[in-house]
């Protein structure tokens, strides 16, 4: 059951260029949270809350990795220790847990929910390969936040292997794939879908108002009609997704 709470910022840490990590005390939410779920976070001076994926859970703390993409996230980047943040969560559906191996594919800040997922799979002794790509090295998130064994890709080769994150996938992928990233990455996954033999789940984004399905504001178009990212997602089967 989602909780409406006043959480407390424990730390606001530099994670990469234009990217910060909030460590937040929110035990009730942390206890329930599953990888793929998100929280709605109030931002000073902004009307709507911002949906932010949960990047890690440890004890009663949540880690949220946030990239500055607009005024809301810019404002959020300024919060300091002991700031109280109104928060609703956890919300949305989690990734389905694979039985055997898996590939986790994170593009840009989309890596956030996959860090949490990788941590869970590791604790369950489920073999998996976390892949993480950025445009260039300065955006690559500090290793302290990333899962062990993560393979890093940059499009300009300034860090890790040169290429997009999808170039890290074999020509034929027999295990489930879990992806989160920008529209272009999801689009490329759709184009390459013939290489995926098993299931592919992707996390989708949309501007959101309520976060729990009542306002119908966060609709995206899918092959079975409009779906709500907050309630029907944010995790969707790749074959359902339409990118325009």
């Amino acid at each position: 059951m989602p909780l409406e709470i006043e959480s407390i910022v424990l730390e606001n840490l530099y994670a990469a260029e234009e990217t910060f990590a909030l460590r937040i005390f929110a035990p009730g939410i942390a206890k329930q949270a599953k990888p793929g779920q998100f929280v709605m976070l109030s931002v000073t001076g902004k009307f709507l809350r911002r949906p932010i994926s949960i990047a890690a859970v440890s004890g009663g703390r949540l880690t949220l990795l946030v990239r500055i993409v607009g005024k809301g996230t810019q404002e959020l980047s300024q919060v300091s220790r002991n700031t109280k943040l109104k928060m609703l969560g956890p919300l949305g559906n989690p990734f389905n847990i694979p039985t055997g191996g898996a590939f986790l594919v994170g593009g840009g800040i989309g890596v956030a929910p996959l860090i949490f997922f990788s941590n869970l799979l590791k604790s369950l002794n489920i073999e998996h390969r976390p892949l993480y790509g950025e445009k260039c090295g300065k955006y690559v998130i500090s290793r302290r936040f990333l899962p062990d064994g993560v393979e890093i890709f940059t499009e300009d080769g300034s860090k890790g292997t040169i290429g997009t994150v999808l170039s890290g996938l074999p020509n034929e992928v027999a295990t489930p794939v879990y992806g989160c990233g920008p529209g272009k990455m999801i689009e490329a996954m759709i184009q390459q879908s013939s290489k995926f033999i098993s299931t592919v789940e992707v996390s989708m984004e949309q501007r959101m108002a309520c976060g729990y399905g009542v306002c119908q504001g966060c609709a995206i178009e899918t092959k079975s009609g409009y779906k709500l990212v907050c309630k029907d997602g944010p995790i969707f089967p790749l074959q359902e997704i339409i990118i325009k």
């Binding site: 009307f47 709507l48 809301g72 949309q206 501007r207 306002c215 504001g217 409009y226």
Partner: peptide, 23 residues
């Protein structure tokens, strides 16, 4: 009614706009 095409909400100063379309 399936509702209006996305995006259906956006932030505005001290408020929001919606175009849900009576879904």
């Amino acid at each position: 009614r399936i509702g209006n095409p996305p995006p259906r909400v956006c932030e505005t100063p001290c408020g929001m706009l919606n175009s849900i379309g009576l879904a």
